[in-house]
Design a protein around this nucleic acid. Sequence first.
DNA 1: CTAAGCCTTCCAGTCACTGGAAGGTCAAGG
DNA 2: CCTTGACCTTCCAGTGACTGGAAGGCTTAG
Lengths: 129, 129
Amino acid sequence: MNIGDVASRTGLSTKTIRYYEDIGLVMPQRGENGYRRFRETDMHKLGFVGRARALGFSIEECRDLLALYEDEDRASADVRQIAIGHLDEIERKIAALSDMRDTLKGLVHACAGDHRPNCPILKELSDGA
Amino acid sequence: MNIGDVASRTGLSTKTIRYYEDIGLVMPQRGENGYRRFRETDMHKLGFVGRARALGFSIEECRDLLALYEDEDRASADVRQIAIGHLDEIERKIAALSDMRDTLKGLVHACAGDHRPNCPILKELSDGA
DNA sequence: CTAAGCCTTCCAGTCACTGGAAGGTCAAGG
DNA sequence: CCTTGACCTTCCAGTGACTGGAAGGCTTAG
């Protein structure tokens, strides 16, 4: 299979797939013409990484998850640990964003949003009051 | 005022302040010795940007907000519009992260997390089931 | 006079791609 | 046989918003 087929089947871009090869994540073979030749397992791995990325895992976490996936003797505890760490990270991001949202909502609510210059949003940014 | 004073007073790093000069956000004067010389207004602007960044505004949004802040004839509607746009962006991010969190939570819950290799997290990433 | 603690510039790296240029390969149609 | 267009290749540069570090100049206290 050529890279274009893999791209349309996995939903990843060819650029992304080449990038994953560059960083040693999924290494296809090469044909005589120099084209990348992907086996089913390569495509499967790329799908795996795509789904892990969609869940917000970093590339390094994907690498670790892939390694565990390929390790028949893995302990599910190791996988779970990675997922929990990532979950914590997500919770922290949500909390930070929620704080921003609440503050911003209050400011937007307080701002008349008309032709006049007076603006509580700017005032807040200016004073930190 | 030298850059170090401004850094400790605004809570920004000297690196960040130099970066903000590089991109033309806050332009201090220079002394005879080549050192940056910050006036009160420069520091005030840096504080403004710092607070805007803490609310998640991008640098370009900060630039626009600063311009409005300095424009006596601004309409508060313009400020509000920027804030609303950013608020939408934040809501979208929160929604995306919440989806990830929910999926991950379910998977973590379903995973035994013991010494055995069987793992629903890996299964999900593998299948997309 | 020297040592510490400032300050300067410049280059490189982060993360995970994305865009684009220049050029090689392949399959189909005329 | 030739061309056209759709593939494929590599390499370089850019994104956002910094951060780290090296190499060197300035200032101030002792």
